[in-house]
Nucleic acid binder design. Structure first.
Lengths: 188, 188
DNA sequence: CGGTCTCTTGACGGAGTTCAAAGCTAGTGG
DNA sequence: CCACTAGCTTTGAACTCCGTCAAGAGACCG
């Protein structure tokens, strides 16, 4: 169950078995049903979530009350609201399970004390944070450079499995276009 | 000269005087004239730059050959192309001095060896990276939520000093609108 | 001063939104 | 196992934002 996270930790930093046991013992395994919230907009995000099984989305409500999805996450991805987690301010986004989902979660205090006990963990999360930064920049570049149609094709190319597991209107939201227009694009 | 960086390091992590001396001794102070490149698109970015004095922009050329600015940086900011720096792939962006600029630069190998000697430095850069991530997410949110006019007003509110130090057409590029349309927005 | 860089103006066109409505699909209870 | 409903997807018409193009007016620097 926690093997997935162990593998992920070892992918970036070398840990001994006993170190991993110690670290893993501070995580909590939590399961969420479809539509359950891992994090609610307005609440302070005190945890990081590692997806063991399932699929979640991060979204917020815009000024007109529409949901805007800014991230999906599946198996082996970390998800949290970084700004809220780091600064302790209310989260601007909610995180919701799209499928029944199993996560390993750890809260901020615990992680801070683990950083002190295992400086290598700090390295792991520096690397994870760098990778998140790169991912966000790439997503951003896609918006800078591509029109809606190209964004859609790019999405289908890069993350084909998502289109199997996520309804159209959520993909439209993620791509920042209306469901109506996405429908038109798909036809053409 | 390097006092700025010392203060910045101490803002996030506690260092002794001798630790700071040691760390700082591995930085190189470099000055750039207006229009000089700190980093050229297509080259691998092997350095991080801390701006001591001046103003730079990061930009890349789009498919039509137009410059698209994705970041400005001034005194006390770090700048680099994270993706190129981390992965060793060619940089998708150039970094250019808009004003005569003084930076403290450090290269990847040096920083990696310093991480080992001073784990606290890894903490510092984890925090800096988190903050960069937050900044990029905020910028991204602005694009998700606001139309051109609101983006412009938001920019003028958040970073008023930039409007003094940066020409209009660069602000337009940063805001992802044409200089012509920005001109129209300013009139209204 | 002359020339290049920067900012403004206006006409036109296209990408994408909005609104309203109808057609589909899948889950739910009886 | 069918029927109903709620949620999802498609269609089409009107409208808006913003880019493109072309041209002119300042402004800065040698």
């Amino acid at each position: 169950m926690s093997q997935r996270l162990k593998n992920h930790l070892r992918k970036y930093v070398t840990f001994s078995d006993s170190e991993l046991e110690d670290i893993l013992s501070h995580f909590r395994l939590v399961s969420y049903a479809k539509k359950d919230l891992l994090l609610q907009e307005g609440h302070v995000c005190t945890q990081k979530f590692f997806i063991v099984e399932g699929l979640v989305r991060s979204y917020h409500l815009d000024s007109k009350g529409n949901e805007k999805i800014n991230q999906f996450a599946i198996e082996n991805w970390w998800i949290t609201n970084v700004e809220s987690f780091v600064t302790g301010t209310p989260s601007s986004s909610s995180i919701e399970a799209i499928e029944p989902t199993l996560v390993l979660s750890i809260d901020k205090n615990t992680i801070e004390s683990l950083y002190i006990k295992f400086p290598k963990l700090e390295r792991y999360f520096r690397i994870i944070t760098e990778n998140m930064l790169i991912a966000i920049q790439r997503r951003y570049e896609v918006f800078l450079q591509l029109k809606s149609k190209a964004r859609y094709l790019n999405f289908m190319n890069q993350l084909p499995e998502f289109s199997q597991r996520v309804p159209q209107y959520m993909i439209a939201s993620y791509l920042e276009i209306t469901p109506e227009y996405l429908s038109e694009l798909r036809k053409a």
